[in-house]
Design a protein around this nucleic acid. Structure first.
Lengths: 204, 204
DNA sequence: GTCATGCTTGACACTCGGTGACACATGGGG
DNA sequence: CCCCATGTGTCACCGAGTGTCAAGCATGAC
C-alpha cells in the first residue's frame, strides 16, 4: 500500500539514520561546544559506529552545516527565475530573502545552529567557504542577466558579494538578537543600504 | 657593531628558522598542492622536527596564510587615521588599497601564494575566517567614525563587508589574470561600483 | 674553568579526524 | 535456494596537532 514501494524503502532507512545522527550531534554540540565532542561520541549516541558516521557526513563540520546544502542552488534558481527587467537590487533581495526564510523557518532549532556556526571558528570557516562558492554562482547568473563577461567585469562579483554580505549580516544580527529582530525587516534594511550601488551602474 | 645587541640575538635566530620553514613550505606546496605535502616533509626540508614546526606555526595552513598577519591591524589603523571628514568610500578605498599594496608589493612570490590560497579550499577557508575578523574590526571603526551603534545599526557591518568584498574581488581578478591586471586600477574600479552605497546613507 | 640557569629542540607517545579494506548481515530477485 | 547488492562494524592505517621529558647549548656568576 505504499504509494512508492520502490527506492523509498532503503532510502527511508538511510534518512532515519541521518536524522538520528544529526539529532545526536546537535544535542551534544549545543552543550560543550564543537571541539569538546568527538565523532565517536556522536556516533555512539546515535547507536552507530564512527565509520558509519563518515558514510553519512563528509566531515564533522558537515553535520552542522548540512542544512545549508542546496541553499546555493536554490539561490541561483531563484535569481535565474526573476524577470530580467527587474533591477538587480530587487532580484537579489528576493534571492537572499528566499535563503533567509528557508533558514529562519523553524526558528528554535535553526537559531541555535546559526549561533553555533557563527560562534565556532571551524564551523564559520566552512560556512564562509560555501558562501564563496555561492558568490561565484550568483555572479555568473548576474553576469548572464546583464550580458557581461564575468572574467573581465567587476560588477557581477561585487553585486553577488554585496548580496551575500547582506545575507551574512542579517544572520549575524538575527543570531545576536537571539531571534528577537525580524529577519524580513533586517533584510530590507540591508538592501536599502546597498541598493544604490546595485542599481547605479548596470553596464559600464 | 650590532646596533641592537640585546633581545635581537635570540629573536633573529627564531626568525631564521621561521623563514627557512616558510621557504621550504612554499616551495613544496607550490608543486603537488596543499594536501599532497605533509608537515613532516616540510619540517624535514627545513631541517627541523615536526614538533618544532608547530612551535612556529599554529597549523599547516598558517605557514601560507601567515603573511596576512597584521594586515587586519594595519587596515584598522589606516581607517582610524583617515580624517573623519572624509566620505566613507574614500576612507575605505585607502584602507583596502593599503592591504592590496602590501600584498602585491613583491609581485612574484605573493602572486603564487595568493593563487595557492584562492585555489585550495582549506586555505581559502582560513583566509575567509580572517576576513570575517577584519570585518568586525573595521565595522567597529566605521561605527565610531559615524557615531553609530554597531549592535543595532546595519550600515557599519555592511560598509566593512562591501570593502572586503572589494578586497577579495581585486585579489581574485589579480590572481586569475596572473598578475597582468593592475591592482590599483582594479581597486578603483571596485570602489566606483560600491561607492554609491557607501556614501548614500551616512546616519539614517 | 666550572657550575647553575633558562631557552630551544628532538624524540616519543598519544588523541582525534578521516580513509581504505575486508568480512558479515539482510533482503530482494532469479 | 542461491546470488547479488547494499549497509554496517571492525580493524588497521595515515596525518594533524599536543603534552611531556630529557638533552643540547647559550649565557652569566663565581
Amino acid at each position: 500500500m505504499t504509494s512508492r514501494p520502490a527506492e523509498t524503502l532503503a532510502q527511508r532507512k538511510r534518512q532515519l539514520v541521518a536524522d538520528e545522527l544529526t539529532q545526536a550531534a546537535l544535542g551534544l554540540l549545543a552543550r560543550g561546544g564543537f571541539d569538546a565532542v568527538t565523532v565517536d561520541e556522536i556516533a555512539a549516541a546515535a547507536g552507530v559506529s564512527k565509520r558509519t558516521f563518515f558514510r553519512y557526513f563528509a566531515s564533522k563540520e558537515d553535520v552542522v552545516v548540512q542544512f545549508l546544502t542546496g541553499l546555493g542552488a536554490a539561490m541561483r534558481e531563484e535569481l535565474a527565475s526573476r524577470p530580467a527587467s527587474e533591477p538587480p537590487s530587487t532580484a537579489l533581495r528576493h534571492t537572499v530573502w528566499r535563503s533567509i526564510d528557508a533558514c529562519a523557518g523553524q526558528t528554535e532549532r535553526t537559531l541555535r545552529v546559526v549561533q553555533l556556526i557563527l560562534g565556532t571558528p571551524a564551523l564559520l570557516a566552512r560556512f564562509l567557504e560555501r558562501q564563496a562558492q555561492w558568490r561565484e554562482e550568483l555572479a555568473a547568473v548576474v553576469a548572464e542577466r546583464l550580458g557581461l563577461d564575468p572574467a573581465t567585469e567587476l560588477y557581477p562579483r561585487l553585486a553577488a558579494g554585496m548580496a551575500l554580505t547582506a545575507f551574512h549580516t542579517v544572520l549575524q544580527q538575527w543570531s545576536e538578537s537571539d531571534g528577537t529582530k525580524d529577519p524580513a525587516v533586517l533584510t530590507d534594511g540591508c538592501f536599502t543600504v546597498i541598493a544604490p550601488a546595485l542599481d547605479a551602474v548596470a553596464g559600464e
